[in-house]
Design a protein around this nucleic acid. Structure first.
Lengths: 205, 205
DNA sequence: CACTTATTCTAACAACTGTTTGGTAGAGTC
DNA sequence: GACTCTACCAAACAGTTGTTAGAATAAGTG
């Protein structure tokens, strides 16, 4: 039984790693051509197998995006939680969240692009309600930090936190569409420059 | 012949206005559900007619997006040109461009959303090369303003203009996805708050 | 070796896609 | 009233879509 369990765990592990391998290829195509515009056959070809073979690993095309997005969001929120629970003040929290976001983009570029482009369309389905939930949680989190910063006197009070939240959210996530891991800047440098602009402003003193 | 020409102009005019009417409805659906995910039948239904009837007005589904996007880009660049040719200094030009952009969003919301979501996918086709061209022109324009501002000593010199350009471009256009004409803020107010953040920074003095 | 299991392929399916064709109601013209 | 033109509908087209079922392959396992 001990041997059998080890086997079961072994196959479960290789199976999971194969899924991850496939999903990585699939996510790339979904990100590049769009989820709806990509056929199952194209997605499979990017993974080196034929269309029908994907259905040995996944129930449906929908469950492929589902797994891509929920995996990404799970990891992202884990990182966010770590920042939020470490008792920083508002400006430090904002800095840490921005850095964490750009690091997420570096790690899950394709997933972020898909999230960015397709979530409004996908969220119509009940299955993807967690996308809406994540969106709301995102808004609460960021607006909370901004409002706390205003209350602390660290952020200016004459700007609407709802608008600023949207500006920040958009710029950060949309960066996934142009970020290239082999580009001139890494995630940390992009985060630094972005924070310099948003916090200190573009204007020369 | 004079009467015949007046007739021809009359029907051409009503025909053009009907096209515009249809395109407005179609653009709304394309923006909401995505171009690839929207069927011709759905697009037609939003316009109150049947799928096949759209082909009396348009050659193909592709030519519908084509007309939506090229009309929008044409108007947008006309507005941009007006700003760029009026001899303002860099900060004033940046302010004017941002205002002009948010006004574009107010007027062509659906088109901007489509441009934002689908242009990378569409640009693969030769027919949509002008999307890539517009993108490049956009980059030249904005980077030019930023570099001029640095040269004038109006903008800080320690930030990379390529990155800042991307941040600004993204935030401005992505706003189309959440902007609602009946919302709390109009385009001018959104532009003001955005400029305050980007130019002066979030930090309290 | 025979046997099992995991993974892929082959080939088909029904539904749906963009598009075309021929017809038709109605408004305007002679 | 016959004719024409515009704008639409109804019905079909060929190709593509996501998905499935069964056969084939390969890699262990005893």
């Amino acid at each position: 039984m001990c041997a059998r369990r080890r086997d079961a765990e072994g196959t479960a592990a290789t199976r999971a790693s194969r899924r991850a391998e496939l999903l990585s290829a699939i996510a790339g195509v979904f990100a590049d051509r769009g989820y709806a515009a990509t056929t199952v056959r194209e997605a499979a070809e990017a993974a080196g197998i034929l269309g029908g073979s994907l259905y040995y690993h996944f129930d449906s095309k929908e469950s492929m995006v589902d797994e891509i997005l929920s995996t990404f969001l799970g990891e992202m929120w884990a990182d966010y939680e770590e920042v939020l629970s470490s008792g920083l003040d508002a400006p430090q929290t904002l800095r840490a969240l921005v850095h964490s976001s750009f690091r997420s983009i570096e790690k899950h570029r394709a997933a972020v692009v898909i999230y960015q482009n397709e979530s409004r369309y996908l969220a119509q389905a009940e299955r993807f309600q967690y996308l809406t939930a994540s969106q709301e949680r995102f808004e609460r989190t960021w607006k909370g930090v901004l409002e706390q910063g205003v209350a602390e006197g660290a952020f200016r009070a004459d700007l609407n936190t709802g608008l600023i939240y949207r500006f920040i959210r958009d710029t950060v996530w949309v960066a996934a569409t142009w970020y290239r891991p082999d580009g001139k800047f890494d995630a940390e440098e992009i985060a630094r420059q972005y924070l310099a602009m948003v916090l200190e402003g573009l204007q020369a003193d």
